[in-house]
Computed example of a mutant assay.
Amino acid sequence: MAGHDLALDGASVQEALDGLRQTWQQAAGTDPSYDVVSALMTAWSEATLGYLNQLSCEDPLTGLSSQAHLRSRLSEVYRLTGPGGVASHALVVFALAPGEASEDTGDHFTRAMRLARAGELSRTAFARDETVARLGIHRVGILTRRDEHLGRRVQVLRTLLDRLRDPGGEESPVRIWIEGLPTTDVGAGMLLDDLARG
């Protein structure tokens, strides 16, 4: 927790390590153990990486928009249209099957590449000013206008995604749906959080 707080306060790695050493020597009379230093550095690096990822509009691994960028675009829709006007927009969501991937780093990369390919296909069906963003490990969200062509574009996307094959060459089942937007911007943030966890 201390590493996380230090990173958010802008402390460098050296400042965090120096502070840990001074505190540990005053409290215990020795240098901190490897486990303590490791815990501090892990918390510091995770907070720093999270901050950097939120600065970018793009997910660094897939090239899709980041969830933070999608959240910003949603807030813009609420700001420009007002609570009643959000009915003019929708969130198209699709979820790729998790597959048999383990927690190995290579599997994370394989999943990200499948998601990147799926996002690329979605830009074929949604080629206007839509925001196509990564939502968690297996999901993509597309902020789009709700018009008379939305159902047809979702069907085109479903057809494209049904052809997406996993590395073994078998069909990967894809769930796709249109999500209505909540009446408030806060509700939209909670919806995105729920979708990213699912």
Rank of each mutant, 00 (worst) to 15 (best):
A7T: 04
E15T: 10
L160N: 05
G169A: 08
Q155I: 01
V132K: 07
G82L: 10
G50K: 06
L121I: 01
H4E: 13
M190N: 08
L161F: 06
L181Y: 09
R128N: 15
G99L: 07
R152F: 09
V154F: 01
L6Q: 12
A97C: 07
T183W: 02
D129L: 05
R71Y: 04
G63H: 10
T62S: 15
R73I: 00
H89L: 00
I142N: 02
A47W: 04
L181N: 09
W24L: 03
S66H: 08
A16T: 04
Q26W: 06
Q26F: 05
G180R: 09
T144N: 01
E120W: 05
T105Q: 06
D104G: 05
E148C: 04
R71S: 15
V13N: 04
H69N: 11
A125C: 04
D162A: 14
Q155M: 11
T159I: 03
G84H: 08
R114G: 10
R134N: 04
M41E: 13
I142M: 03
P98V: 08
G106D: 09
L135V: 01
R111P: 03
L135N: 04
Y34T: 12
L8G: 01
V37M: 10
P32S: 10
D185T: 03
L6H: 03
Q155W: 04
P182T: 06
R165L: 15
L64H: 11
R153L: 03
H108W: 14
A87D: 14
A101P: 00
I178A: 00
G198T: 06
A2N: 05
A116V: 04
R134W: 03
R165K: 14
N53H: 13
T48P: 00
T23W: 07
A39K: 14
L121D: 02
D59K: 05
P167S: 09
M41Q: 15
S12Y: 04
P167G: 05
L52T: 02
R123K: 13
A43K: 05
G10N: 05
E103Q: 10
A28N: 13
I178K: 00
L61M: 14
P173W: 03
L6R: 12
A127G: 07
Q54N: 14
A112E: 12
R21G: 03
G187M: 06
I142P: 01
E179R: 09
V77Q: 12
L143E: 11
G99K: 10
A97R: 11
V77Y: 11
V92R: 01
R146N: 14
R146W: 04
L8V: 03
E15Q: 15
R146I: 00
M190L: 14
D185W: 04
G136A: 07
R134K: 11
T81P: 01
H89A: 03
Q155H: 12
T23C: 05
S33Q: 13
I178F: 00
L96D: 08
T30N: 15
R152V: 05
A16G: 10
Y51Q: 10
A127Y: 11
H89I: 00
G141R: 07
I176Y: 08
G136K: 06
Q26N: 12
E179L: 00
D35K: 08
F94G: 05
D129M: 03
T110M: 09
L161D: 12
V132F: 08
S72H: 08
V86K: 08
E58F: 12
V92T: 02
